[in-house]
Design a protein around this nucleic acid. Structure first.
Lengths: 224, 224
DNA sequence: CCTACCGATCGGTAGG
DNA sequence: CCTACCGATCGGTAGG
């Protein structure tokens, strides 16, 4: 089998190739990590030469940085943008949780959450990749905290609640879920995460709708 | 600098060397991962030859398996054993959470939680290492669920509570905390995790001691 | 436990 | 974007 079909419609020739490379790099890196991802493997997967691929980036580190940036764009498109459109405050916060869990469950990347994998891989190394991952983590955290503050100003969440604490608990729960889910692949874990989030929000929500009882902790609690 | 001092007191000669190798392997793997850990690097760090080290295991995979097993023993010693001695039920459950967070905070391994790192690294690969990591995860989950059942039979936790759900929420929260903590290195995250666990247990605990109010979500909630 | 070596692959370069 | 190559390192082996 020679080469590969070059029918991935994008802008110009060189840009298209670069995008194809980065799409494959994000995919591979989500599974094997960014350090184990080799230029040779990546090139042969795309049917091009090692040196040809290398020329697009100039160093492995530059390829890694570009890969993280590409993954950030995917995450923004798949998780942040859909939730951003929801009504402000609590619904939007819940939407962020949902789109994040869905991003993992739909297997947007074969290795699960790209940034969780990169976080574990680079948390002990200095350099631009760790900086990127840290910056994005803080960016997302701030975004969610702002959503909680909006929920408070809309009287959906009690004013005495610390936004940082709610956001921390929700994101830690979801991130921990993702780690376990990738290992065990049991969809019930995603369900349990949703129940956990409901229980957490129950504690801070103003005037919960009496029509629903949300027995998150109850035995055999299942979604309808 | 030739060789290294061989004064790590253990049983026989060969066993001692093997233990030294595995201690270094666990330490290195917690930072770089088990796949990136190379036999050459490990050997030179211990001041021995590559072939000499290799002879102890016969293959890289066997070294990896032995490393995970060694890490399991450390985890048992550092996390499970100390908590096991606490009073049964809720105090024991809380002790497991505490010793686990402490295991990360005390940096028992330089890379944080060994099994979280291995979980992320091997969740997409078949083979004995993933099996080990999975088996240990399930073992710990079952252990914690048993503790919750004991707490129920001791009337510390309500009978209507689903042990699997409590254990899931607590461990997901802690695991997510560990991922964030390793990346951001902010001790407040550990504190927030403890508050989150308190809040979670508050919902399921029987007859909370009226002497304390546990305002886990409140702004500026700090430990004494 | 060692030295010496194997073929394969790594990131990166030369030159086109 | 290619072929051809560099020195270094990989897991693993031979032989002692």
């Amino acid at each position: 089998m020679p080469r590969q079909s070059r029918t991935s419609g994008s802008t110009s020739r060189g840009t298209s190739t670069r995008k194809d490379i980065l799409a494959a790099a994000v995919s591979l890196a989500s599974v094997e990590g960014l350090e184990s991802l080799s230029i040779g493997t990546l090139a042969s997967e795309l049917g091009m030469s090692k040196a040809g691929l290398f020329a697009h980036f100039g160093s492995k580190e530059a390829l890694q940085v570009a890969t993280v940036e590409a993954a950030r764009l995917v995450f923004t498109e798949e998780v942040l943008v859909p939730a951003r459109g929801r009504p402000p405050g609590l619904p939007q916060f819940q939407a962020y949780i949902d789109t994040y869990l869905s991003y993992v469950q739909r297997r947007v990347h074969p290795g699960g959450c790209f940034f969780t994998a990169m976080s574990i891989e680079f948390d002990d190394r200095r350099g631009p990749v760790r900086s990127q991952v840290r910056a994005f983590a803080i960016e997302c955290r701030d975004l969610l905290e702002q959503t909680i503050r909006e929920a408070q100003s809309l009287d959906q969440i009690h004013a005495w609640v610390d936004p940082a604490q709610v956001v921390f608990e929700a994101t830690a729960l979801v991130r921990g879920t993702i780690v376990s889910y990738q290992l065990l692949r049991d969809p019930i874990l995603i369900q349990r995460a949703r129940l956990g989030i409901e229980g957490l929000l129950e504690r801070v929500r103003v005037a919960p709708p009496a029509s629903e009882l949300r027995p998150a902790m109850r035995r055999g609690a299942e979604r309808a």
